[in-house]
């Protein structure tokens, strides 16, 4: 299982447009991707409602996990996405 920790760069946190973009990207990987706070239960990263209910704020750390072929590459691309201020783009 691949794991990455990343800090939310988006100034509004992981909701609104940034959440939609992240969920879309996670769905496009075709893998089972999960997102959660360190040490807490994670949620399905392809569920917009789950990701929004997580309520991750700007500057907060989240843990991404994925399984299957290409999991590492998939997570690297999602980490890159979350490291950008998506709301400013």
């Amino acid at each position: 299982m691949a794991t990455r920790t990343v800090t939310i760069a988006s100034s509004v946190g992981l909701h609104a447009r940034p959440a939609s973009m992240f969920v879309q990207a996670a769905s496009d990987t075709g893998l089972d991707v999960e997102i959660g706070r360190p040490g807490e239960e994670s949620v399905d990263a392809t569920s917009i409602l789950g990701v929004m209910a997580l309520g991750a704020k700007h500057g907060e750390e989240v843990v991404l996990t994925a399984e299957g072929d290409g999991a590492d590459e998939a997570l690297d691309s999602l980490v890159a996405l979350l490291s950008r201020d998506l709301d400013a783009e």
């Binding site: 969920v23 879309q24 569920s47």
Partner: peptide, 16 residues
């Protein structure tokens, strides 16, 4: 467009 696209994502939500 942004509001509607986000609402469409909710309609396709796996968790729901």
């Amino acid at each position: 467009q942004q509001i509607l696209t986000a609402t469409a994502l909710i309609a396709r939500d796996k968790g729901l």
